[in-house]
Amino acid sequence: MGALEEMVILIAAAMKDEAYAVSIAREYTRRTSQEISIPAIHTVLKRLEAKGFVKSSESAPTAERGGRKKRLYQITTSGYSLVSDLRNQREELWSLIPDMSI
């Protein structure tokens, strides 16, 4: 799993029911202060969905989207266990790193 994919899945998980491409892109930009394009997010989300780490559902159409439906993404159980595994791995590694200030 790439860094961008991990970032996207974490943001999606954190946003609970409000995670869709635009909100994820906004959150990503806010946290990393890097611009990201919507198609890039789309690509990542579709890939994650194909691997079964996220699932999606449609919401009702809204006016600010020109009458188009949103597709909301939610983290699945296998997605959750994957990212928590990743986190555990990292923390193990971190515990081995000596403190730089010494």
Binding site: Y20, A21, V22, A25, S37, I38, P39, H42, E58, P61, E64, R65, G66, R68, K69, K70, R71
Partner: peptide, 27 residues
Amino acid sequence: LIDEIEGDLIEVYRERFERNPRKAKFK
């Protein structure tokens, strides 16, 4: 896929349009 992609693009387009219409169109 149209609903999702087009809807998302329109949403960000409007947001950008407030700031800079030409840049929004280009993006």
